[in-house]
Amino acid sequence: MQLGSMPLLKRWRLEQEAITFAVVLLLVILLAWGSPAFLDSNNLDSLQTSMAPNMIIAIGMMVLFIVGLFDLSVGAVMGLSGIITALVLSAGYGMGAAIACGLGVGIGIGLINGLLVAVFGINHLIATLGVMYMTRGVIEVLLLGAPLAGFTSFPLAFTMLGNGSIVGVYWMFLFALALVVVGEFVLRRTVLGRRLYFTGGNHDAARLIGIDTKRMQIGALVFSGFMAALAGVLVTARIGMANRYLGIGLEMNIIIACLVGGGSIAGGKGSAIGAMLGVAFISLITNAFNLFEVPSEWQSSVIGAVLVVVVAIDGILLLRKQRVSWQTILGWRSPRRNSATLPAE
């Protein structure tokens, strides 16, 4: 098909993003219509400040999805970098030094992940999971005996990072949006972006045409660690204390957001806009639970169900692309008769 004659969304590879956008829009309309508290400025504030860090992490995670990896340690990295920043600040160092330390932690852990995955060839699930456990261990050790809400005296300039706003829009949120725009530009319009897609789309082919796929993988993991650390610093500035529970279970929400926003576990697919929309979706769902006062225990179930449905749809779309008939997918016809349904290599 000629590029010019393709539908716009297909040409820009934004088909799934468009669906997510429609769903997000629908959710916004339903919430605004169903709950008067939704458009309340308090609610909008909390929506923005919960979305912004998640968007930042999701951009990093989406880059990982594009190269065909994911990172389970982001929640723990976010927690640790926030705590390190708080510790350095309360030790009397300046704000710049504290933030640099926090971000350094993220880069360091990302580098460890990258080396484990790309150099030692360890399965990324296990590597990042082990690193997550170890990072959580470090957090507990660092805060051993510390009060639950320790380290609360931050300089005003630092707390403004998380609390400053202009006409009701938080700086933090604007910053996250700017990162989405920059991320989208890099992914679409630069050689680096192209290489990332090639690495995830077909690893061997990418290596054969001279892309250093190992470096791409390490770079993506370092980037994701850095973004998680950035989010950790911002959240610490927002809540004004070191919190040892920061980011627990966050990795799953981010992964689900990326899947909803058009990423694929198989790699080679995804966009920064998709990451943003996916996070908006998850945040709105969570917000809906709070507004309609659904017991929080149900949240995990609904998010799990969303993940199952998204993974199933991803699978069906992939099979349809391989021209497997609906009858075979649903099991109405014996699959063993049909060579087209043999599992791929």
Partner: peptide, 30 residues
């Protein structure tokens, strides 16, 4: 069934069912 019919990645799928079932457990424990 989802793994063999839809050829989905069992890792992601079972993370989903894990969250789903955990939610039900939470509701019952409460």
């Amino acid at each position: 069934l989802l793994v063999v019919r839809l050829r989905v990645n069992s890792l992601m799928l079972t993370i989903g069912t894990m969250l789903l079932v955990r939610g039900l457990v939470g509701v019952m424990t409460t």
